[in-house]
């Protein structure tokens, strides 16, 4: 394995700039009508409304953006994308904000992104998501010993229905080469 492909998803300035440039392009035409904010089912829990978030991207207020919890609360329902009168891909912009925060690597980003990281690590290892091993990976990343307790009722229910089992190895490693290639390309982009 070459040096490049053995790296993990490390922050790279180039990649960071590429995500930021993509974001500016995605929301550049936002006219601040606020239809996105009014359509968002999770807006009540956000510290900055989606409409303000797009403006902050236009202004390049990077520090304030990365301190916000807004984009972590996007559940990808696409209601804002559907209704945006300018036809902007706002749900994709929320996804790009998550990637930007991930590259920034703050403790808050590690906590909020832990589920996505655990999910993708499991996909990379097993080819298909194995719910039990994916949740284990999630708990390890969160480093909160009380967190697994809140999932015990669901875990027991799944166990009683025969829905928890050891990882299947049928597709193990199948996606390794693609993950390595994508990593190499994204770091260099």
């Amino acid at each position: 394995m070459s040096d490049v492909t053995s790296q993990t998803w490390t922050p790279a300035t180039d990649e960071y700039q590429a995500v930021l440039a993509g974001l500016r392009e995605t929301v550049g035409a936002c006219m601040q009508c606020g239809t996105c904010t009014a359509s968002c089912p999770n807006e009540f829990a956000m510290d900055i409304s989606p409409r303000r978030m797009w403006r902050m991207i236009q202004f390049g207020m990077l520090d304030e953006i990365l301190e916000s919890r807004t984009f972590w609360l996007c559940s990808s329902c696409y209601m804002c994308t559907l209704r945006c009168p300018r036809g902007l891909k706002l749900t994709s912009a929320m996804g790009a904000l998550k990637r930007l925060a991930r590259l920034d690597g703050s403790p808050r980003a590690r906590k909020n992104g832990a589920f996505y990281e655990a999910f993708m690590a499991d996909v990379e290892a097993n080819g298909r998501v194995q719910e039990a091993s994916m949740m284990n990976g999630y708990f390890l990343r969160r480093r909160d010993p009380t967190l697994p307790l809140s999932f015990i009722p669901l875990g027991l229910k799944m166990l009683s229905k025969g829905k928890l089992h050891l990882p299947s190895h049928a597709q193990r490693g199948r996606l390794g080469p693609m993950f390595a290639k994508a990593r190499q390309m994204e770091v260099g982009s």
Binding site: F179, R183, M185, E186
Partner: peptide
């Protein structure tokens, strides 16, 4: 030999994947 589609977890991690 189908494999995972990435669900909504891939977009926050890697645009290419």
């Amino acid at each position: 030999d189908w494999t995972c589609c990435g669900a909504s977890a891939a977009e926050p991690v890697s645009r290419l994947m």
